[in-house]
Design a protein around this nucleic acid. Structure first.
Length: 482
RNA sequence: GGCUGCGUAGCAGAAUGGUUAUGCAGCGGCCUGCAAAGCCGUAUAUACCGGUUCGAUUCCGGUCGCAGCCUCCA
């Protein structure tokens, strides 16, 4: 039985979809004016993993993740660049999709864009005005009247009085109440705009998610996710808008992922302490590495970013891929025991650290089977391991290739480029090309044959220095990996 | 200031009212020409102070420390 921690109730609850067997999930996606950073990667990977698991659990899932392609920051950035805002957003949407692919993130089923949902947004605002939840302010902007909505604050655990007490000084006089937020913003000269009953303008940030989610999934759906920081005000406002407009409950389960931190501090645009996905991929080019790093802590916990952590992910994955090496997986999972343990972990609010620990248990038993030459057991355990890895979006590459691929790229002495994915190309270590390695290994085998251990060890040391590890097989051949 | 949440071994990171998490790093052994990988064994922990309990790291209260939201932010 799947349990999900629901921010709304601050507790783990058994998951019961509205309609048996079907799940609707909406996740707040990116505002596309810059490259995705590791914090964005966490959202993508976490909810991709949730989606994979829900499907594994037998649900027919509709996964919606929106794109915010119009807002103040986009307009500002486009102006700075002297380009059309659409050119800017198109470029970064493409970059985002490249990053996703490089992280083995499967595309959501629907990816609505704010600019393509203006009709629905306008319709929802009209309804809110009709139902007296919204009004036109003295400057022509349309605002949501927060005090009209009784449940305001139920998600973030805030109450209106506290919020009013903590108000900032610069009060927008166009609003009736400082807590009110904008639904439709009038365009200033030169700004992009869409026609509406209230004049030419653009949607506020919060309304687009209300409109897009209810349009794609219905007025009332199962899961809504996003980063912790969206709890307030974004998701609180979404509830106010959607429930105000439809009169129905909006979302049953709210899921929020924790932040990525750098030196115990939130990674964010405003602090400027962020690493973009493509930056990190240059050093750790394999999709599995960043995914493993992200999934190695629970999605609600903080995740500290450091190269040590990514190095550990590389080591851990090397162990798993080493276990999988040279085994043909069979079609069907026979070792159901591990699958059940894995499901028990994932059923407990998507406990990926425990799920990963189970992969290591499988690897250990697999290695034992290998030691006693039990090929049948090896194959069946390799099958479970790959299957479980697949549910987490890892371990799907050919183990031999993976182990030989540069997955922790030293930035020193590099020369040649090699394409890793459509967004990333990585430089290979000088003198470290595959052919060169093969030659050195051949030389070492000759030295070994003539029992010139000193030379053999010298060659091995040289290879080690370049990050290449060699392994003499019992049959006299030598294997290697990076 | 108001509201959340957190504090587990060298590091990362789970879990639990009484019994091995797991990975990396360490130590001893097997294997190996020596290694590597793998296997076997092994050490190190629950911020602090009280309370509840036969027993608390786990529940409750307090102290200290950290993070987040309250303003755009995943």
């Amino acid at each position: 039985m799947l349990k999900i921690y629901n921010t709304l109730t601050r507790s783990k609850q058994e998951f019961t979809p509205k309609q048996p067997g079907k799940v609707g999930m909406y996740v707040c996606g990116m505002t596309v004016y810059d490259y995705c950073h590791i914090g964005h990667a966490r959202v993508m990977v976490v909810f991709d993993t949730v989606a994979r698991y829900l499907r594994h659990a037998g649900y027919q899932l509709t996964y919606v993740r929106n794109i915010t392609d119009i807002d103040d920051k986009i307009i500002q950035r486009a102006n700075e660049n002297g380009e059309a805002f659409t050119a800017l957003t198109e470029r970064f949407i493409q970059a985002m999709h490249e990053d996703e692919r490089a992280l083995s993130v499967l595309p959501p089923d629907i990816e609505p864009k704010a600019t393509q949902s203006i009709t629905d947004i306008v319709k929802m605002i009209s309804t809110l005005i009709e139902r007296d939840f919204a009004y036109v302010g003295s400057n022509g902007d349309v605002f949501y009247a927060v005090n009209r909505f009784d449940g305001y604050g139920k998600l973030s655990g805030k109450n209106i009085e506290d919020l009013q007490a903590g108000e900032r000084v610069n009060v927008d006089t166009a609003k009736r109440d400082p807590l009110d937020f904008v639904l439709w913003k009038m365009a200033k000269p030169g700004e992009p705009y869409w026609d509406s009953p209230w004049g030419q303008g653009r949607p506020g940030w919060h309304i687009e998610c209300s409109a897009m989610s209810t349009c794609c999934l219905g007025n009332h759906f199962d899961i809504h996710g996003g980063g912790m920081d969206l709890q307030f005000p974004h998701h609180e406002n979404e509830i106010a808008q959607s429930e105000g407009a439809t009169g129905e409950p909006f979302v049953n389960y709210w899921m929020h992922n924790g932040f990525v931190r750098v030196n115990e501090e939130k990674m964010s645009k405003s602090l400027g302490n962020f690493f973009t996905v493509r930056e990190v991929l240059k050093q750790y080019p394999r999709p599995d590495v960043i995914r493993f790093f992200i999934l190695s802590s629970h999605y609600r916990s903080p995740l500290n970013y450091s190269s040590e952590q990514l190095d550990e992910a590389v080591s851990a994955l090397t162990r798993l891929y080493t276990a999988l090496k040279d085994i043909d997986v069979v079609d069907e999972v026979i070792d159901v025991e591990y699958l059940r343990r894995f499901e028990r972990a994932m059923d407990d609010d998507f406990n990926t650290p425990v799920a990963l620990a189970i992969l290591f248990d499988v690897a250990k038993e697999l290695n034992k089977a290998r030691e006693r030459n039990d090929a049948g057991k090896e194959a069946s355990l390799a099958t479970v391991l790959k299957k479980l890895g697949g549910l987490l979006g890892i371990l799907q590459e050919n183990p031999g290739d993976w182990l030989k691929s540069p997955r922790r790229v030293s930035l020193d002495h590099v020369v040649d480029s090699v394409a890793i994915s459509d967004s990333v190309s990585v430089k290979i270590i000088e003198k470290g090309g595959d052919d060169w390695v093969q030659e050195r290994i051949q030389e070492r085998l000759e030295a070994k044959k003539s029992k010139d251990w000193a030379l053999a060890d010298l060659i091995r040391d040289e290879l080690n220095k370049l990050g290449i590890v060699i392994k003499d097989r019992p049959d006299g051949t030598t294997d290697w990996h990076r």
